[in-house]
Amino acid sequence: MQVLLSQADRALGRLDGSIQTLPHPDLFVYMYVRKEAVLSSQIEGTQSSLQDVLAAEAQILAPDRQQDVDEVVNYVRAMKHGLQRLPDLPVSVRLIREIHAELLQGVRGSHLTPGEVRTSQNWIGPGGCSLNEATFVPPPPQEVLEHLSKLESFLHSDTPLPLLIRIGLAHVQFETIHPFLDGNGRVGRLLITFLFCEQEILLKPVLYLSYYFKKHRQEYYEQLQSVRDHGTWEIWLTFFLKGVIEVSRQATETARRILQLREDHRQTITEQFGRVAGNGHRVLEHLYQHPIVSVNEVQELIGTTYQAANELVSKFVDNHILAETTGQSRNRKFMYRSFISLFHDELAEDDS
C-alpha cells in the first residue's frame, strides 16, 4: 500500500506539473472535464459520446443525437458549479446537495427530488428487483443525514491518514450511504474531483478517474460491494490507487500531446497564414475551449467582416486544422478534430 501510495503521489505531481506548464492552463481543462463527464455518465448507462456533448454545446442539432446528452451536459455544469463554490464552501453536505440539484435539473430523474436527501428507502440490484432481492440496501432514510454528517466530519478531521487514502475511503462511504433517489454514482465520482481540488492535490480538475472505473466497471461495483459485505478496505484502496496511477500517467501524456499539437499548429499558422497570422493565433487559442466553431463566432472573436472571417476559416480548413462537420452550405460548423481526437481516441479504444 505504501508503494502504491508513493507511486500515486508522484504520478499526480507529474500531472499537476504538466498542466501548469501549458500556456493558459484553464483553456485545456475544458476537454478533461468533458471527458470525465462522458465516462462517469456512461457508467450509469448513457450512450452519449464526447462528440455528442461538444456538438450539443455548439448547438448542432444532429438528427441522430443521443437523447441522454443533456445528462452529460448537466454533469459538466454540476462540476463547474462545485469548483466555483469551493473557495467559499468546503466539500460538505450542502455542496453535495447543490451539485445534485444541478446534475438532475431537467433530465431523467428530475422528478426524484433533485438536491434533496431521500426520505424513502432505496436499494441496489438488477433492474426491476424488489427490496428482498436487492444486492445492497443502504441505510434507512431517517439515518441518512446523520451518516452524511459523520462523513463530512471525517473529511475535515485532523486524521493522520494520507489524503489519497481519505478520498478513497470517502468515495465508498458516500456510495454506501446512497443519500439520493438517483444520481448517487455520478455525485460520488464528482466528490473525488472536488476533494482532489479542495486539498490542492491537483490545482485543476484534470484527472478523469471514471476512465478507469468504466474500463473495470464490473470490478468497480464488486469492490464497492465487497467493502460493505466483508470490510475489504485494503483491496478497494489498492484498486483505487492503481486507478489514480494509471489515469494520472495517461492524462499527463495527453497534456504532452496537446502541447505538441499546439506548437505544430502555431508554426503552420505563422508560416502559411501571412498577414492574418495574428488573428489565426487568436482563433487557435479559442479552439482549445470551443473546439467546434462557426464563421460568425470567428467574426465576433476577431472583430472583422464576415468575409474576412470566412477567408480565415478557409485557411484553417486548407491547412487541415479545421474540418467542416455539417455538410451544409449555410450555418456551417467547423471542428478542431485533431484536438478532440486526443481525448476521443481513448474513449473509442475503451469501447472496442
Rank of each mutant, 00 (worst) to 15 (best):
L50D: 00
D9Y: 02
S248T: 02
Q328V: 12
L241Q: 09
A251C: 12
Q272G: 08
H281I: 14
Q328M: 15
W236F: 09
L54E: 12
H290C: 03
R249T: 10
S110E: 14
V317Q: 11
L151E: 06
H290T: 13
I292E: 10
I165K: 06
V206S: 07
L241S: 11
L131C: 00
I60P: 00
F316L: 08
Q67D: 04
V69Y: 02
A62I: 03
Y75Q: 03
Q173L: 04
R85C: 01
A8N: 01
R108D: 05
S110L: 05
V172F: 10
S210P: 02
L207N: 01
S130V: 08
P87H: 06
L148W: 09
F154N: 05
Q173P: 00
V107Y: 09
E116I: 13
G303P: 06
P126D: 07
I245T: 01
H216D: 03
A308F: 10
E57Q: 14
S41H: 05
P179E: 08
L104N: 06
L27R: 14
E175C: 10
N310I: 01
S18A: 10
F194K: 02
G280N: 04
K214P: 00
Y288F: 15
P162W: 06
Q42K: 15
F194D: 03
V206T: 14
L86I: 05
H230Q: 08
L181D: 08
L259A: 15
A11Y: 08
L83E: 07
A37M: 04
V317S: 08
V313P: 02
Q67W: 02
Q2Y: 06
G280F: 03
L203Y: 07
S329G: 10
D68F: 02
L191P: 03
G13C: 04
P141F: 15
E175M: 11
V29D: 04
A134K: 06
S329N: 12
T326L: 14
T270P: 00
N296G: 15
E116P: 02
E263W: 07
N279E: 11
